[in-house]
């Protein structure tokens, strides 16, 4: 009895308001997230399993999938390395320009992907700053794989670092200092002390980074050149299929990305739970 009356006091809103707010939130989630996601799968399997299979194993689709995996395979490790370095520097040391570095890391979050793509065209394009120099040496960056990798690295830059910085700051450096005092080498300290402390957060950042790398559209679209079978990633291939009135195939390939989204969500939940368990 006492507990119920206390909740009544704490929550001044009348029951009808609470219920309708919860209902509204649920309804909106259903309408804007669950329904479209379901629609993707319904459309994808509209003409049956075989049509779906044909669409995702067709030559251009296969090449798009390979390219996306390759780009992700290059950019995620790069950003893992970069994110770790940056987080370490920012969480462990006090230095001039620390805040500036923090702000710089966030830039890709704030810049529109189209602009991110255009930056690279401006720098590496044939009419760009290094255009003539690169052409003389026969190096193709824009409208080829390196450009797509660069754009993806840029867009996914902050994910790992942003995940690790607050985590490492809240943990402090006491354990690491202890390890050093007890005679550990830097590498031993990192492997035995730092890494176990941050592993779930690190994985969480990697998951987000991977999802974005696979799904990035805007920046990649600008630097891709849209050559079928050569520079189209999965999202670009989906757009092409859609524009060719090939709706079932478009949604079939899109369903792959949706699976990535669902898996990301599941991993994210799992890792959040793991991080809490470790820290609590």
């Amino acid at each position: 009895m006492i507990t119920t009356s206390r909740t009544r006091v704490l929550r001044a809103e009348p029951t009808w308001l609470r219920r309708s707010l919860i209902g509204l939130a649920l309804g909106l989630t259903l309408l804007f997230i669950v329904l479209p996601l379901a629609a993707v799968f319904i459309q994808a399997f509209d003409k049956g399993w075989q049509v779906w299979q044909a669409a995702v194993t067709e030559e251009n689709a296969r090449s798009a999938i390979m390219l996306s995996l390759m780009v992700t395979g290059i950019s995620v490790p790069l950003n893992l390395f970069f994110g770790l370095t940056a987080a370490w520097t920012i969480a462990r040391f006090q230095f001039k320009g620390r805040n500036l570095l923090l702000t710089l890391i966030d830039i890709p979050f704030g810049v529109s992907p189209v602009v991110s793509g255009l930056i690279f065209v401006l720098v590496f394009g044939a009419q760009g700053w290094f255009g003539a120099w690169l052409a003389d040496r026969d190096v193709q960056i824009i409208f080829a794989v390196p450009g797509i990798v660069l754009a993806t690295v840029f867009v996914t830059f902050p994910f790992v670092a942003r995940e690790l910085i607050p985590l490492m700051q809240s943990q402090g450096s006491d354990e690491e200092e202890a390890a050093i005092v007890l005679g550990a080498t830097a590498w031993q300290m990192f492997r035995r002390v730092t890494l176990p402390n941050i592993k779930w957060g690190l994985l969480y950042g990697v998951v987000l980074c991977t999802a974005r790398a696979l799904g990035e559209f805007g920046a990649v679209s600008v630097v891709s050149g849209h050559i079928r079978g050569a520079t189209n990633t999965i999202p670009l291939h989906v757009e092409i299929l859609y524009n060719e009135y090939n709706y079932t195939a478009a949604f079939a390939v899109a369903s792959l990305l949706s699976v990535v989204a669902v898996v990301t969500l599941a991993l994210k939940k799992f890792l959040e739970w793991k991080t809490r368990e470790d820290n609590g």
């Binding site: 390759m70 290059i74 790069l78 190096v139 080829a144 794989v145 390196p146 990798v149």
Partner: peptide
């Protein structure tokens, strides 16, 4: 970064 770019160039 350079070596990655070179290897992807090689791949293409």
């Amino acid at each position: 970064i350079l070596s990655v770019m070179l290897s992807s160039l090689l791949a293409s």
